[in-house]
């Protein structure tokens, strides 16, 4: 595939400055600079801190991606960038940088949707996407079930969270349990020493909710239930069994996510489920999804954890598909759209 298009992808929708290089369907290198350590001091992502870090990291990250991939910018055939959704100020740094690159190099620009990129990244991991694919994206910023007939121009939303994102619930529960930010990995670790002994609520899974919010999620009630349970133990002067609470909370989240994802696959006659987003790194979610997919005869595709979290490779992967399928390039005047709808694959 030496003559397949070489696409440079830029991602700055949250706190990771990502630059990836993809040739056709092959990942050459994925460079990431994260400002997560700075945000940890604040107990959560601070948009202005993220934007400042993106500006500082942008050129060094482009430089490192090219060096490690063994290419020069002159070899690049197109530039892709996350146009939205995400933090407005953070997105603007990436979009402006991508435009500058496209302009300087004289190559087309593809402004793409962050969520579609999470789906497309699996192409560089497991090969062409089955069409249609059912994708579940779960992170600190989103929790969505998508039906994807064609990742370059037809992405349909089946449902999403009506309150907190799944990753947000992990962060909030971690805070309740006195675990550091970001909460996901810490809860995952704590849960390994615990048992599922508390029956926390499964949001939007009963009767009428399954009619009106069949493929939607809700995690704020679960978070409240955990806080109340912990507060009651503390009020009674009892020690809080952190590992058991973590395990029980994690079980409730993964149970709802996988149950609805598999139901969506069945009802839409799709034989493939892809999971992406930072929460896809959760070991219990991966294990439960595998078990339930096996039982249902569904093929599960989950990229490696480094490609599930936000990165530049996913943007480059979608950009390369855009080029391969001859989709029109974006105008140099496109905005950064913080609330870009998931159904708009490109800007």
């Amino acid at each position: 595939m030496a003559d397949a298009p070489l696409v440079l992808g830029i991602e700055t929708s949250c706190d990771e400055t990502g630059v990836g290089l993809v040739r056709g369907e092959t990942l050459l290198f994925d460079a990431i600079a994260s400002s997560v350590d700075e945000h940890a001091r604040f107990g959560g992502v601070v948009p202005e801190v993220a934007s400042r870090a993106h500006l500082e990291a942008m050129v060094p990250t482009i430089e490192r991606a090219c060096r490690e991939a063994g290419v020069t910018l002159r070899d690049v055939d197109a530039v892709a960038v996350t146009a939205g959704p995400g933090l407005a100020g953070a997105l603007m740094v990436g979009v402006a940088s991508a435009k500058a690159l496209a302009l300087a190099l004289g190559v087309p620009l593809h402004g793409v949707n962050h969520l579609a990129s999470h789906v497309a990244v699996d192409i560089v991991e497991h090969g062409p996407l089955p069409e249609p694919t059912l994708a579940m994206l779960v992170s600190g910023g989103h929790s969505s079930l998508l039906l994807v007939p064609d990742v370059t121009h037809d992405v349909r939303s089946l449902g999403s969270t009506i309150d907190d994102a799944a990753g947000e619930a992990f962060d909030k529960v971690a805070r309740v349990l006195g675990l550091p930010f970001p909460g996901g990995p810490h809860i995952d670790r704590a849960a390994r020493d615990g048992a599922v002994v508390i029956d926390f609520p499964r949001g939007l899974t009963t009767g009428r909710d399954m009619e009106r919010h069949r493929f939607d999620f809700s995690f704020s009630g679960l978070k409240t239930a955990v806080s109340r349970w912990v507060a009651a133990r503390e009020a009674a002067g009892e020690a809080v069994p952190v590992a058991d609470v973590a395990a029980s909370f994690q079980e409730a989240v993964t149970d709802v996510l996988t149950r609805k994802a598999i139901l969506a696959c069945r009802e839409h006659g799709v034989g493939h489920l892809q999971i992406g987003g930072g929460v896809a790194a959760n070991s219990r979610l991966r294990a439960m999804a595998q078990e339930r997919c096996d039982d249902a005869g569904i093929e599960l595709r989950v990229p490696r954890p480094g490609l599930c979290t936000d990165n530049g490779a996913m943007v480059a992967a979608l950009g390369a598909q855009m080029v391969l399928k001859g989709r029109p390039a974006s105008d140099l005047g496109i905005p950064a759209d913080s609330s870009m709808p998931v159904t708009d694959v490109s800007a």
């Binding site: 202005e48 934007s51 400042r52 993106h54 500006l55 942008m58 050129v59 482009i62 430089e63 910018l73 407005a88 100020g89 603007m92 740094v93 402006a96 940088s97 435009k99 500058a100 690159l101 302009l103 300087a104 190099l105």
Partner: peptide, 19 residues
């Protein structure tokens, strides 16, 4: 104002690097 300021700066440094 920060967001506008950064648009100019990142455009300049990216073009400078690319060229």
């Amino acid at each position: 104002p920060f967001t506008g300021l950064r648009v100019g700066l990142v455009t300049a440094v990216t073009m400078g690097y690319a060229l």
